[in-house]
Design a protein around this nucleic acid. Structure first.
Length: 877
RNA sequence: GGGCGCUUAGCUCAGUUGGUUCAGAGCACUUGGUUUACACCCAAGGGGUCGGGGGUUCGAAUCCCUCAGCGCCCACCA
């Protein structure tokens, strides 16, 4: 049967994925084997596969496939995240396209739309992962808003509330006027912006003068309730205790003193707007100031905005500046560069705003999580450098604002039964809430309809932080068999951008709710960037279509391409040339297979050099395997792949196959053939995690296999001791061959012209390998001589010299130049070595072994100089 | 402003405890090669004073100091 010389992945990948699914190799349930589990970082349910996912999931698949081969009961749990704000924003936008405004529909109607959307697009990204070859246990697919997941979230909330760790507070929060919700600190991106700093003059109430303040937000003067100066600022000491008048609205406000104010900045006078600035809020509380909120939730001014009511803050800013200018209050403006908080999702400028929110106390939760990573080494980070970032954040951790003014997510289980917002109970169900409300309030007549559930939902991460536990039902039912078997999970693979959002919180949740770590190792991938180091993004259009890449290069090619330059934690500069390299590698292996399968097998004797070459490769394989295992242990997956790549391409294809390859038209002996096949299969096993499709295809084409003999469920080769001497021997032989090829090239001696090689000195390797050298460099003979041969081409390896009698005209001039240069270099080298040896401090302080090495270098250099001089002389210079 | 990290070949990066194995890999590049698995190939080769300066040491890419450039995290001064 003719096999194509080009490897075509598309059909093959479909075929084997279907085969793996059909035979349930990805499916896992507890058994007597040790468990190895990974939970997927759940992608946004409405998302599509991008390069970051490709990298991240390729890595997880490599880890899980290797674990499976090593005999673990491997379980990779897939799933998606409801991604509260991101999804809600998409749904709102889609409704808008259809002429529907979120404000005009009920919560229930909106949620129906959101669920429709989820059902329509929710599976897309998971289907794409299948194309990449991901061996997830699809029967376990979870969604963060599945019923049991919701139950876990609610249970956790109630528990934390009863412990006093969750509280409601009227706090300054990051308000996104576009999405009309709060954001956590982590969702706010600070961007450098050019703005104007306005200098405004406030008249004193008693008419005794004025005071000038500087602000970047002049519209907020309408919410001013004080002016603050530094108590040590001599310029203003007489003003403290007096009153100033706010321009435009004419409100009388006190002038107070506080160390918080920086004497150097602006005018040294600070307008205090407790409703719209974190620090002003703090000053307000300290000095008991009024709080005047001038904004509506959508970022327009409310009735405190007076004649600017209804205008957006940015519009009002310009308008008010104009008014202030015409009334002479605006003294000057200055350009200023400062950082402005914007919403990660909507890009809207964040307004600090006071509102009722739910918070989770973090102080007690953080300590065990700090210990687990930084003190006990229970959890390891790869690369380790992220432990520093983690430490810094965990030590300065602040309470977590967990409420969001959205509809898509788990609604907060707080039920109000009175008129205001102060009478409420927290309970897992409304029924339970009713009983509690009746008993707490003493009002037995309360009915279900008297209860109002808090309209807010929980931050998305409040479900994500439970993920490794909740996917195994470990929150609702911690004694269940699966949870005990699979948890804690082994590896987590994610990006450093969600170290705090997610990783840190999972560690806290793990210790809080299961008294255990959620995972043992965290592998941080880098960001995927383009060749110009730009972050890949939709708006730049520099993100390649993931599925198109798989079409072009094959999933195996793409996986290799991604891995080749993505050391843990380093950003990956994606270049599809790397996928091309991956595809090329697949083709190389494919052709090696074609070659071997094309051989005609006979029962002739096995040439001794074949035995030696096969022996060498078997040992070389074990050496490489030890390195590969070590790389895996250290989560250096790129290195593991590169070692495998070189082993297969260089050692297996270029050396072993060339060494045993029969002459054209001749058969190969059966023993060699069988061993080559056996070694080929070993290669397939260690390559399988990286290139699952190609390897399974060859594995199955090579022999008829039962369904329980698929490569995916075979075994990872056992580590064996290897014969280093044998490997070294072969390296020497390779060196001889390489030198002979080099010599042919420099002397322009064609391969078809046979050479004779004379050897002076000892060949400390198996002389049976001469046959191999003869075959690979076309020698008529290679034999030992008792005298050096002056006047012949030569090279030297160790203390042995090799002479090749000239068969044709020699490029004397070129060789002379080369030899002279080499002589000069060697003489310089000798001088430096001798200088070192003459240094008494070196000889007396350095270890003997190091000195011995230098002495060896000295004598080798002297020998070499002698040889070079002889050669030059023989050329008649 | 506080903290962390990086700077090694044209590009992307390895270099664990300072000393045979230390100046490396892959890609790219140069040269030669195709009736005999693969041009998505084979072979040979060029290329770096390890960011600058100083110090410790018999010996520094590796340890210390300093300067310059880059990146990330945290906080945020109106």
């Amino acid at each position: 049967m003719a096999i194509s010389s080009k490897y075509d992945p598309s059909e093959i990948e479909k075929k084997w994925y279907a085969y793996w699914m059909e035979h349930g190799y990805f499916y896992s349930k507890p058994d007597e084997r040790p468990a190895f589990s990974i939970v997927i970082p759940p992608p946004n349910v409405t998302g599509i596969l991008h390069m970051g996912h490709m990298l991240n999931n390729t890595i997880q698949d490599i880890l899980i496939r290797r674990a499976r081969l090593r005999g673990y009961n491997a379980c990779w749990v897939p799933g998606t995240d409801h991604a509260s704000i991101a999804t809600e924003a998409k749904v709102v936008a889609k409704l808008k396209e259809n002429g529907i405004d979120k404000k005009d529909i009920s919560r229930e109607e909106f949620l129906n739309h959101a669920w429709d959307w989820t059902h329509e697009y929710g599976g897309v990204i998971l289907e794409q992962l299948k194309k990449l070859g991901c061996s997830c246990d699809w029967q376990r697919t979870k969604f963060t808003m599945d019923e049991d997941m919701n139950a876990a979230v609610i249970k956790t909330f109630v528990e934390l509330y009863r412990e006093g760790k969750i509280y409601r507070g009227f706090r300054m929060v990051n308000w996104d006027p576009e999405a009309q919700t709060t954001l956590s600190d982590e969702e706010v991106i600070y961007e450098e912006k050019q703005d104007l700093l306005y200098y405004l003059e406030y008249q004193l109430k008693d008419g005794s003068g004025s005071v000038t303040i500087a602000t970047t937000r002049p519209e907020t003067i309408l919410g001013d309730t004080a002016i603050c100066v530094n108590p040590h600022d001599d310029r203003y000491s007489t003003l403290v205790g007096k009153y100033a008048v706010v321009p435009v609205c004419g409100r009388k406000i006190p002038i107070i003193a506080d160390d918080y104010v920086d004497i150097e900045f602006g005018t040294g006078c600070l307008k205090v707007t407790p409703a719209h600035d974190m620090n002003d809020k703090m000053l307000g509380e300290k000095h008991d100031l009024d709080v005047i909120d001038i904004l509506n939730p959508d970022g327009t001014l409310n009735h405190h905005g007076l004649h600017y009511e209804g205008q957006d803050r940015s519009v009002a800013r310009k308008a008010i500046a104009k008014e202030l200018q015409s009334s002479g209050v605006l003294i000057k403006t200055e350009s200023i560069t400062h950082k402005v908080g914007t919403s990660e999702r909507t890009k809207a400028v964040i307004e600090p705003r006071l509102s009722d929110q739910w918070f989770l106390r973090m102080d007690e939760l953080s300590q065990p999580a700090i210990d687990a990573v930084l003190n006990t080494d229970e959890i390891k980070f790869f690369p380790k450098k992220f432990e520093n970032t983690y430490r810094h954040w965990m030590i300065n951790i602040r309470d977590w604002n967990i409420s969001r003014q959205l509809w898509w997510g788990q609604q907060i289980p707080a039920y109000y039964y009175g008129e205001g917002n102060n009478d409420f109970v927290v309970a897992a169900t409304k029924e339970e809430a009713l009983e509690m409300a009746q008993s707490v309030s003493g009002q037995q007549h309360l009915k279900m309809t008297d209860l109002r559930q808090d309209p807010d939902v929980l931050d998305t991460w409040f479900s994500s932080w439970l993920w490794p536990m909740s996917v195994f039902d470990g929150i609702n039912n911690p004694e269940n068999e699966e949870f005990k078997y699979y948890y804690p999970t082994n590896d987590l693979v994610t990006g450093p951008d969600i170290l705090f959002f997610w990783v840190a919180r999972m560690i806290m949740a793990g210790h809080k709710f299961s008294d255990q770590k959620p995972f043992s190792n965290v592998y941080f991938t880098g960001l995927v960037r383009d060749k110009q180091r730009r972050k890949m993004s939709k708006s730049l259009g520099n993100s390649p279509d993931a599925l198109k890449l798989i079409e072009d290069f094959g999933a195996d090619g793409v996986r290799v391409g991604l891995l080749l330059s993505a050391a843990a934690g380093n950003d990956l500069l994606f270049d599809d040339a790397l996928c091309q390299q991956g595809k090329g590698f697949a083709n190389k292996i494919w052709n090696a297979f074609r070659l071997v399968k094309g051989w005609e097998v006979s029962d002739k004797d096995t040439p001794v050099e074949n035995t030696l070459a096969l022996d060498w490769y078997a040992n070389k394989f074990d050496l490489a395997l030890a390195e590969i295992n070590d790389h895996f242990d250290k989560y250096r997956l790129s290195d593991a792949l590169m070692t495998t790549y070189k082993l297969i391409w260089d050692d297996f294809c270029s050396w072993l196959l060339e060494a045993v390859k029969p002459d054209y038209g001749s058969p190969i002996d059966k023993k060699t053939y069988d061993q080559v096949i056996a070694l080929f299969e070993q290669n397939l096993k260690i390559l399988h995690p990286f290139m699952p499709f190609l390897t399974e295809e060859i594995w199955q084409q090579n022999a008829t296999r039962d369904s329980n003999q698929a490569l995916i469920v075979s075994d990872w080769p056992a580590s064996k001791d290897y014969d280093q001497a044998l490997i070294t021997d072969f390296e020497s032989v390779k060196e001889v061959i390489s030198q002979l090829r080099s010599l042919r090239k420099s002397q322009q001696i064609a391969f078809k012209d046979q050479l004779e090689v004379l050897v002076y000195g000892t060949m400390d390797w198996n002389p049976n390998l001469i046959g191999l050298i003869k075959k690979l460099t076309n020698l008529s003979d290679m034999r030992k001589v008792d005298e050096k041969q002056d006047g012949a081409l030569s090279f030297r390896i160790g203390s042995t010299e090799y002479f090749v009698p000239i068969v044709g005209p020699v490029d004397t001039e070129g060789e002379l130049i080369q030899l002279t240069e080499e002589l000069k270099y060697t003489q310089g080298f000798l001088k430096s070595v001798q200088g070192k040896l003459k240094n008494e401090r070196f000889v007396s302080n350095a270890p003997e072994s190091v000195v011995a090495i230098e002495k060896q270098k000295e004598s080798d250099a002297m020998d070499k100089i002698q040889m070079l001089q002889n050669r030059i002389a023989s050329l008649g210079a």
